[in-house]
Simulated scan of single mutants.
Amino acid sequence: MSTSSEERIEQFYKMVEENIKNGMPYRDAIELAAVTIGGLITAKVSQAMAKYQEAIHPQSHLSQEEGNDALALLSMGVLWDNTYFNPVEPDVSTPLENTLAESIYFIMKYGREEDGLKKALEANSKCVGDVASRGNAIQRVLEKV
């Protein structure tokens, strides 16, 4: 019997929480959990990490845009939901997996800042999509830091 997306995502967050509890920095905790769970979880975390890097790189167009968090989520959504182009292989991710990636983006972007949890939740609230689910995921990780 295969594990559902929801079960894999819950397993991922439990592993992240355990890794942090054991003293691991949250970025390492996220990456280790993603690699351990594998599959689309690894792919979504990789996409979120890449988008986070683009959003903070001072020479990227994204980092210079007003409302760059919303644009980052939108650009990931365009890729995931196949709204504006046809990829070579269809994306088989679920909305839950997309929400996971969006949450990881906020965690990575704001987690190291003073009041990182508060800033991540504020940024999340300004973006469309499943704000509540993203907020819960952000809290699960950043409350442990």
Rank of each mutant, 00 (worst) to 15 (best):
21 K>W: 10
29 A>I: 00
54 E>F: 03
24 M>V: 05
15 M>Y: 02
20 I>M: 08
20 I>V: 15
19 N>K: 07
53 Q>F: 10
30 I>E: 01
29 A>Q: 03
19 N>I: 06
6 E>V: 06
10 E>L: 12
50 A>S: 13
38 G>C: 02
12 F>P: 07
39 G>N: 07
11 Q>E: 15
5 S>E: 01
41 I>A: 10
48 A>M: 04
7 E>A: 15
11 Q>I: 10
41 I>E: 00
50 A>Q: 07
30 I>Q: 09
40 L>P: 00
27 R>M: 11
7 E>Q: 14
10 E>T: 11
45 V>R: 00
27 R>E: 15
6 E>I: 12
26 Y>P: 01
30 I>G: 01
11 Q>T: 13
45 V>Q: 01
6 E>S: 14
12 F>L: 15
14 K>L: 10
49 M>Y: 01
14 K>F: 05
38 G>A: 03
25 P>E: 10
42 T>N: 14
32 L>A: 09
52 Y>I: 01
12 F>W: 00
37 I>L: 07
16 V>R: 05
17 E>P: 04
34 A>G: 07
42 T>G: 15
24 M>I: 06
13 Y>V: 04
31 E>L: 08
22 N>S: 14
12 F>Y: 02
21 K>T: 14
27 R>A: 12
18 E>V: 09
46 S>I: 05
23 G>P: 04
33 A>Q: 05
21 K>F: 13
31 E>I: 12
9 I>Q: 10
43 A>D: 02
37 I>D: 04
44 K>W: 11
29 A>N: 08
15 M>K: 11
25 P>I: 11
36 T>A: 14
17 E>H: 03
12 F>D: 02
15 M>H: 07
53 Q>C: 11
43 A>E: 12
46 S>D: 08
29 A>E: 00
20 I>H: 00
29 A>S: 10
41 I>L: 09
30 I>P: 03
10 E>K: 10
14 K>G: 00
18 E>A: 12
15 M>I: 05
13 Y>S: 06
48 A>R: 02
51 K>W: 04
54 E>D: 13
34 A>S: 09
14 K>A: 13
8 R>Y: 14
11 Q>S: 15
5 S>W: 05
20 I>R: 02
15 M>Q: 06
9 I>A: 13
11 Q>P: 00
43 A>K: 11
32 L>T: 13
32 L>M: 04
10 E>G: 05
40 L>Y: 14
41 I>Q: 03
7 E>R: 02
54 E>A: 05
42 T>V: 00
7 E>F: 06
28 D>S: 11
36 T>Q: 11
33 A>C: 03
44 K>Q: 09
8 R>N: 06
